[in-house]
Design a protein around this nucleic acid. Sequence first.
DNA 1: CGGACGGTTCGGTGCTCACCGAAATGTGAT
DNA 2: ATCACATTTCGGTGAGCACCGAACCGTCCG
Lengths: 253, 253
Amino acid sequence: MKRWDADQESAAETPDLAALAALLADRTRAAICMALLDGGAWTAGELAEYAAVAPSTTTEHLNLLVSGGLLAEERRGRRRYVRLAGPETAETLENLAGLAPYRRVPVRSLAEANHRRALHHARTCYDHIAGALGVAIAAAMTERGLLARDYGLVLTVSGANWLTALGISDAGPSVARRAHVRTCLDWTVRRQHLSGAVGAALYRHALEHDWVSKALTTRVLTVTATGRRAFRDRLGLPDEALYPSLALSPPRT
Amino acid sequence: MKRWDADQESAAETPDLAALAALLADRTRAAICMALLDGGAWTAGELAEYAAVAPSTTTEHLNLLVSGGLLAEERRGRRRYVRLAGPETAETLENLAGLAPYRRVPVRSLAEANHRRALHHARTCYDHIAGALGVAIAAAMTERGLLARDYGLVLTVSGANWLTALGISDAGPSVARRAHVRTCLDWTVRRQHLSGAVGAALYRHALEHDWVSKALTTRVLTVTATGRRAFRDRLGLPDEALYPSLALSPPRT
DNA sequence: CGGACGGTTCGGTGCTCACCGAAATGTGAT
DNA sequence: ATCACATTTCGGTGAGCACCGAACCGTCCG
């Protein structure tokens, strides 16, 4: 029990992994985070209904998530909007989800089953495209030499040209600090899809040019007729990737 | 309460984020995982002592972590060795640690303080180099055009040449499936360092050529005299990155 | 000024789980 | 065979926390 400079620096800092994990270790809070992976801002009430808990319970969860730095909040009038804190948060969440075990959940209605199939087919993942469509895009771009698998996954020169030809300015705005190409393990298909700045730019482009349209309240994306033509012409995507009904049935267990 | 094909597919699968997070949400289990980030295999007893809990408690924790897929175990005789399940696990853990809040922990002895300073200076992170040294390497390689920051962080042509000149065969053995260059947010310095296959190869090379030596029981790396010369000649690393005593004092709060 | 609405605060309840010690198991060494 | 050692099983204890309902507090609308 030796004293030694006790005043100067008798304490150090360690990352508190357990504290962060504890935030996600609850079913309800995890569900909230997964919902927010659509990249949008939700009100406390919407999340309460989505997670099927009382409003008061939701308040407590949101307080924890916000003060833990996972969520950013914005109060407007009597409403409280929350969103994910940033892209890194979203990426870490997706990584975790890819590593997590699967859990069987009952499907209670036909509507829910259709919704699941749609999610499986195409959905947003924070600010880029995921699901079978996202995986197909990444695969096709690699196939055509726009992405190179040699060094991880990078944009090739022809890939950069392809992007500018589409009208996507390579030096995007808020893009500076993020990796241009980043892969993200898809939890429905368990295969890589495109995230990072390029993935985000591509999604923005697809939205603006009406290739896909996003449902208001869910993460489901629908490929429009224009989009089908564009994806077929420019990337040669197969029909399975373009029509939800043709989607492969979910893998067993 | 409408029935509809109830037999065929009345259940679906979702990633159980909460279940995975719950594994890390405990102080003791988190400590165990952080310890295993040294990339080695520990026995149950060693971990019990490290985490300062009873052996029986450790058994329970290890059971959970192994069956949750985070740890791999190997039983040899009456001993139980555990290690991290794989590189993805290690990378996800480091990402999480980078996102986690900091916690002040008391430093009780001079030895512990020295140990912390050493960790801060240079340590292993699963299979590559982290700490101030790791950050300095990544910075110097970017500086010298071996890594390009343009597209995320990729190996440039001169970078690949530099590696082969060192004698690091670019097409490494178990390297195929991992991204060659990957950055990893350092939790001591909060800056990027080099992980992925290239990071791993570099660390292996440094070990084999006696640039650094690893302490047996901890994650601390020591830069040898040979290493100092090599790092200075080949990457122009400054003295701060090479001598632990010159390390910057830890940032306040 | 009501009155509806979105959110918050508070007390209380029940369940989960990390922990330990003591006894049991199984392996290795003598 | 016997003893030491690493780990496991089991019962019991205590603390933490997710949840709800009821009351409360701002904000928006008529």
